[in-house]
């Protein structure tokens, strides 16, 4: 089974985000980058499936040259080879999906496993748009994945509970955070990953026009939260939620 999985290089979510004075983006100076956490679940699942069913895990990233670190991290975890579609442009989800669709055309995987969203932009669109371009079935927000006889049975997180969906492969699965516990990119794994193949392409090589259809006009920091208040007892809390906050 050939599994394609994706990783995005994102700013470290544990760092404090600062907005540039002209609101055009966030301050990137002194910022650390890492693999999108939801993609870690996707990569882990891809490797687990490979371990169970055999085959190959190909990991793809679209982004700057420095994203080779995130690709090598995925290979250190156990992916077999990597493809970087290199661009410094700011991409919308549609452009990402169209680039991926071309990669999928070349690689012809049996299944695509992606993080359900990136922790920087939080859009949660690419897997769905990609499904539409490829005309493949999709099962999003997976907490459980089983592959049997050319089908994937996927347990999904949905509002108010869970749902199970069975999709014919090839198909797309997006990973939620209960799916698994991503393994460490072990230090010996990191050394091995240096010797695994990493192919670099450009959007031009794939014939994809990445000009955005969606443009972010400006970024603003949320309003600073005021100090909390201590309440005397539960009755006081309930009264104030009712009368002051008006939330119950």
């Amino acid at each position: 089974m050939k599994i394609l999985t994706t990783v995005k290089r994102v700013t470290d979510p544990d760092m404090k985000v600062r907005i540039q004075p002209d609101q055009s983006g966030i301050v990137t100076e002194g910022v650390e980058y890492k693999m999108n956490s939801f993609d870690e679940y996707g990569v882990e699942e891809a490797i687990t499936l490979k371990e169970a069913h055999g085959g190959e895990v190909v990991v793809v990233s679209i982004g700057p040259g420095a994203a080779t670190k995130e690709l090598r991290t995925a290979m250190a975890m156990g992916a077999d080879r990597a493809i970087l579609v290199e661009t410094d442009a700011d991409l919308d989800s549609d452009a990402v999906a169209r680039v991926l669709a071309e990669v999928v055309g070349r690689e012809e995987p049996d299944v695509i496993i992606m993080g359900k969203q990136a922790v920087d932009s939080d859009r949660s669109q690419t897997p769905q748009i990609l499904g539409s371009y490829l005309n493949w079935p999709q099962a999003t927000f997976a907490y459980k994945v089983e592959i049997e006889d050319g089908w994937a049975v996927v347990g999904r997180e949905v509002d108010g509970g869970t749902a199970t969906k069975r999709i014919k492969l090839p198909g797309i699965i997006s990973a939620d955070l209960r799916l698994n516990e991503p393994r460490y990119a072990s230090l010996p794994g990191i050394m091995k990953a240096k010797r695994k193949p990493l192919e670099t392409l450009t959007p031009d090589d794939l014939g994809v026009d990445i000009a955005p259809k969606v443009k972010v006009l400006n970024y603003e920091a949320p309003e600073e939260r005021g100090a909390g208040e201590m309440v005397d007892d539960v009755d006081d809390l309930i009264n104030r939620l009712k009368d002051e906050a008006r939330v119950i």
Partner: peptide
């Protein structure tokens, strides 16, 4: 190097 950063990432996550 990239490898150094990856070592640090793994140790940090640990």
């Amino acid at each position: 190097t990239e490898t150094h950063r990856m070592f640090r990432d793994t140790a940090t996550r640990f």
